[in-house]
Computed example of a mutant assay.
Amino acid sequence: MTGKDVPGLHEAQDAIPQGTRVNVTFLGNEDLEMRVAAAQAVKEAGFVPVPHISARRLASQAQLEEFLDRLQQVGATEHVFAVGGDPATPEGPYDSSFDVIRAGVLQKYGVREVSIAGYPEGHPDIPTDVLWEHLENKAASLAEQGLGAVILTQFAFDTDPVTTWIRDVRERGIDATIRIGTPGPAGIKRLLNFARRFGIGANAMIVKKYGFSLTNLMGTAGPDRFVTELADLLAADPASGDVKLHMYAFGGLRATAEWARDYRHRVSA
């Protein structure tokens, strides 16, 4: 959710299980008050806030510490997501999320676990070998500092690159929980626009496999096929380790929460 999504959180609250992790983004057009208020709303609703720390949007270490201090005051620092962020040029001393992690200030404000980004289909602006180097460095630094690590990935439409990437992560000796980004039900045009923006594979074969057609863009699509196939593949490969989902609520928090609730009921029936 974003800082503007607090009303949507309240609307979806009864459809989300207590204790669910809810990420709070760090957008350039939102300020400190909005970010902290959103994290506080998540906490007060009975969920676990995971505020984002956008490295290249931070102008100084003082700004990072002010943000962490305010989050700690509302009980929202145990879990954070450290990410590089969109600006091509850093606004301060942090060029990457690794710079934030190795700054050594997170534990001072009660951080116990840090989510870091994973890219099963690569990144449009970062070479693959650099992505792997950064992932390994971040996982090692968190372990050295005694902090828990979670790898939270970009969203995907195709299980093939996802499962291949999971195997590659484990072969590198990284045993952190992996949360696979999964788009909640949303309009097809909206999903494809996000895919293009983030460099996600969305050719005709992939989207047909996922469950919608490029010739009919007016409807909505959900991740039923993707999640079912991913679950089956992971069950057949014990070496994949601890893998969960992270839902991207492109179609709204309530629609995503209701899809997850209904899917659980269907598969357990």
Results as ranks from 00 to 15, higher is better:
246 H>M: 07
139 A>C: 14
94 Y>R: 09
41 A>W: 01
140 A>Y: 02
20 T>F: 08
256 T>M: 02
238 P>D: 03
194 F>V: 11
84 G>N: 02
13 Q>W: 04
229 E>R: 13
78 E>P: 01
65 E>Q: 15
76 A>I: 07
42 V>T: 00
115 S>T: 03
44 E>I: 01
116 I>C: 09
199 G>M: 14
62 A>K: 12
106 L>Q: 06
240 S>D: 03
230 L>E: 05
86 D>I: 13
58 L>E: 09
184 G>S: 02
182 T>I: 15
192 L>Y: 04
23 N>Q: 09
26 F>P: 01
40 Q>N: 07
61 Q>P: 03
229 E>L: 06
101 I>D: 08
11 E>R: 15
150 V>W: 01
73 Q>N: 12
133 E>A: 14
250 F>V: 14
140 A>Q: 15
48 V>E: 14
51 P>K: 12
88 A>L: 13
235 A>P: 01
29 N>Y: 13
213 S>M: 03
172 R>M: 04
48 V>I: 14
177 T>W: 02
172 R>G: 07
128 T>A: 15
32 L>G: 04
9 L>W: 00
209 K>I: 00
177 T>K: 12
43 K>M: 13
163 T>D: 08
252 G>E: 02
243 V>N: 07
109 Y>M: 05
111 V>Q: 10
82 A>D: 08
110 G>T: 06
76 A>D: 05
208 K>P: 00
254 R>S: 11
167 R>W: 06
233 L>A: 11
164 T>H: 12
152 L>H: 11
74 V>C: 10
69 D>I: 00
92 G>E: 06
117 A>E: 05
75 G>V: 10
141 S>P: 00
17 P>E: 04
76 A>R: 01
109 Y>V: 03
141 S>K: 13
68 L>Q: 13
156 A>M: 14
252 G>F: 01
63 Q>M: 12
85 G>L: 09
103 A>V: 00
98 F>S: 09
233 L>M: 10
236 A>Q: 14
170 R>L: 10
172 R>Q: 04
11 E>M: 08
68 L>V: 10
58 L>Q: 08
182 T>D: 05
232 D>A: 15
89 T>K: 15
178 I>Q: 04
184 G>D: 06
33 E>R: 11
138 K>S: 12
152 L>K: 12
28 G>D: 07
164 T>K: 12
85 G>P: 08
126 I>W: 05
169 V>K: 09
152 L>V: 13
79 H>Q: 15
1 M>G: 14
243 V>D: 02
96 S>W: 10
138 K>A: 11
134 H>Q: 11
16 I>K: 04
124 P>V: 09
20 T>A: 15
13 Q>T: 12
60 S>T: 12
39 A>E: 04
200 I>Y: 02
256 T>D: 02
25 T>C: 10
14 D>W: 05
171 E>I: 04
114 V>I: 11
25 T>Y: 03
198 F>D: 15
56 R>Q: 05
162 V>P: 07
128 T>R: 15
100 V>L: 12
258 E>F: 03
234 L>W: 05
113 E>L: 10
243 V>Y: 06
250 F>D: 11
75 G>C: 10
36 V>C: 05
62 A>V: 08
16 I>L: 06
110 G>Q: 06
129 D>A: 14
171 E>K: 13
104 G>M: 05
139 A>N: 13
26 F>Q: 00
26 F>S: 00
204 A>R: 15
